[in-house]
């Protein structure tokens, strides 16, 4: 892994987090029994992961439910004490929750509301301004900027409880960024939003990053978020690190295949026997029907085979493609899937 000469914005070394989860059998007897003796089981949510993030980077933090993503983000933002390991966010030990650190970062959780429920959004913003000690002129300037970028306009005068989920999320973003944090931890920031709103939030995150150079660590189940925003991804599963590198590398590593789709002239009539011979290994053929031939071919063979087919078949159209990233991620997790042990949310 390339070492950045600047000191990393986020540093995680051998991070471990173990939860003690109370455990008991179902039923009344077990319930009474647990009054006397509580049994707990140790669940390792994060089992020794290491990575670092350079200033200004946007990194996608991927893994299935229960992989330890949220736990890691909570450790990094100071909400959780780790069981072991070394962590620095902006040079601070996060769980000491030094106000100087808290004023420089933010954690936005797609499923948690941080704005006051009953008062107009703008009043919550004003409160955040005071809490984070933002000077008034800077506040006004940032507010204008965020209002424009997120098109908040009318929303600001409404109480939060009267906003739709998407509107609320936009306001959460604005409220969490008024103090211009240098590090953003985003936990599923687009969850539950419609496609248009997802795209808006995504564009906003990219814009914020390019304007302020804020370091961003983002988890999402929507691969579109990750593809649009993150050149680098960190993949964890069962609390261990599976992959750390750029997104294209992930594809190359976990999907050594490409797909080739060929449409044949005249529905490919009379070519039935020639095709298997041209292609070679029969397992490369995924399907062949109604003039369309679909192949799944090792990366290294793709160019050679495509050339051969183009030269020998009446080809009308050809598409050479990476399998969809969702599929790859599925593949990655399926390959290592075991009984999922989910820490308390």
């Amino acid at each position: 892994m390339a070492i950045d000469d600047r000191s990393p914005a986020i540093l995680v070394r051998e991070l471990r987090k173990t939860y003690a989860v109370p455990e008991r059998e179902p039923g009344l007897r077990a319930a009474l029994g647990s009054l006397v003796r509580r049994r707990t089981r140790q669940v390792e949510a994060v089992a020794g992961i290491s990575f670092h993030v350079s200033p200004g980077e946007i990194v996608g933090f991927l893994g299935p439910n229960g992989a330890g993503k949220t736990t890691t983000l909570k450790v990094l933002s100071g909400l959780l004490h780790p069981t072991a390991g070394e962590v620095r966010s902006l040079g601070h030990v996060p769980w000491q929750r030094d106000p100087a650190f808290l004023r420089r970062m933010t954690l936005i959780m797609g499923q948690r509301n941080q704005l006051a429920w009953d008062i107009p959004v703008i009043d919550s913003f004003e409160l955040n301004r005071a809490i984070f000690g933002v000077p008034r002129d800077e506040y006004r300037q940032r507010l204008t900027e965020l209002t424009d970028l997120l098109e908040l306009g009318e929303l600001m005068r409404k109480p939060v409880r009267n906003l739709s989920l998407g509107e609320r999320m936009k306001c959460e973003f604005a409220g969490s960024l008024l103090h211009r944090p240098e590090v953003l931890f985003l936990d599923e920031p687009t969850i539950g939003l419609d496609v248009t709103m997802q795209r808006r939030i995504r564009a906003f995150i990219a814009e914020y990053n390019s304007r302020t150079g804020a370091t961003t660590l983002l988890t999402s189940h929507y691969m579109a978020d990750v593809e649009a925003l993150c050149r680098r991804v960190v993949v964890i599963h069962h609390g261990t690190l599976l992959y750390d590198g750029d997104l294209t590398g992930l594809v190359a590593r976990f999907s050594p295949h490409k797909s080739i789709t060929i449409d044949l002239e005249d529905g490919g009539e009379g070519l039935g026997e020639r095709i298997p011979a041209l292609v070679g290994p029969p397992e490369w053929i995924v399907s062949h029907a109604e003039g369309r031939l679909t192949l799944r071919v090792p990366r290294s063979e793709t160019a050679r085979l495509t050339t051969r087919l183009l030269a020998n078949l009446p080809v009308r159209d050809v598409i050479v493609d990476e399998p969809p990233i969702d599929e790859i991620i599925d593949l990655v997790f399926a390959g290592r899937a075991g009984p999922a042990e989910v820490p308390p949310a």
Partner: peptide
Amino acid sequence: SPLLLRPV
């Protein structure tokens, strides 16, 4: 949690 994330 949101309260803990504030610098006050």
